[in-house]
Design a protein around this nucleic acid. Structure first.
Lengths: 160, 160
DNA sequence: TCAAAATCCAACTTAGTTAGTAGGGATACG
DNA sequence: CGTATCCCTACTAACTAAGTTGGATTTTGA
């Protein structure tokens, strides 16, 4: 698995913030309940997103998180890197700290890893919170059979 | 890290076989020494490649492994899947066994994972052992400063 | 026939990572 | 002042990765 659950939760949370811009600061508790994420775990994740400059936090009662930039300006690449760090593809690539093979300068396998990494980052960079939000809204409309009122965790699908 | 060391070793081994077609069956011991891989570990990996139909084994003394198809017909996607199994990108994708979210049919995040997976498989599918071998040979020529005689594990760079 | 060389197979180990949990501080609102 | 919130560190249980170990089976060659 390339992307951790942490990463998925981070994207869920960011998408939640993007889809509810009028709410003002949203607390971890709220997001955790709406998106079905462990609260304590999400706290850690939001910390990483804040350190990555993707969200701003408001402390104290009535505090919470808001996006630091507009959804158009936040790509999934930003989110993934803030949470998991730089995407590393193989065990033996130029930038990595791991034990590298002796023939690094003439090894073709590292080139493969680099190519794959580039491809992944390109895909993630073209996806913004804004485009994801739009896709989500469109999907909501196209899947009318979806049980909106059943159980918890579906309210967030409706835009504010 | 997306691809395990196992996977890298498997590609190294396959490339070794592709670059030395005249040797006949090549033993695990030989490949392990030439490509700097733990012998016991490589044994496991070759087993996976055999089960995946990418190599054929000859048992007994003078035995070893040979490619089951020509290098043009073996892509890195084949190798990676034989060793690591299907590439899974995120925790929540249609095919996976892991606990999926409730809104799977309308969740956009799984779409992201699918897009990334597709992109990776496309890159890996276009790379064959033959193309990799060619790249390796070209690189050998372009990097004349490379110390060919220093240490072990560089002999394999020269085609048979 | 028999020893050596090889594949084959399954169990074990060790270190690190993942996905949380727990517990307490710091800060701001009312 | 009390409550709700962010903030931070440490801990843990389960899993995975990267081998290691020990042996069984098969084939060649002397």
């Amino acid at each position: 698995m390339i992307f951790s659950a942490k990463c998925e939760y981070g994207i869920r949370a960011m998408l939640d913030l993007a889809m509810n811009p009028e709410e003002g600061p949203v607390g971890v508790r709220t997001i955790a309940e709406r998106r079905d994420i462990s609260e304590g775990f999400l706290e850690q994740i939001m910390g990483a997103l804040r350190k990555g400059g993707l969200v701003e936090s408001i402390r104290g009662s009535r505090g919470g998180y808001v996006l630091a930039r507009s959804p158009e300006e936040i790509s999934l690449a930003d989110v993934v890197v803030a949470i998991d760090g730089p995407v590393s593809t193989g065990p033996c690539v130029p930038g990595s700290e791991s034990k590298r093979c002796q023939q690094m300068n003439i090894c073709v396998i590292q080139d493969v890893w680099v190519d794959v990494t580039d491809c992944i980052m390109t895909v993630l960079s073209t996806m913004t919170l804004a485009s994801l939000k739009e896709r989500q809204l469109r999907k909501r409309v196209e899947a009318p059979g979806t049980p909106l009122s059943e159980g918890k965790g579906v309210g967030w699908l409706l835009p504010g």
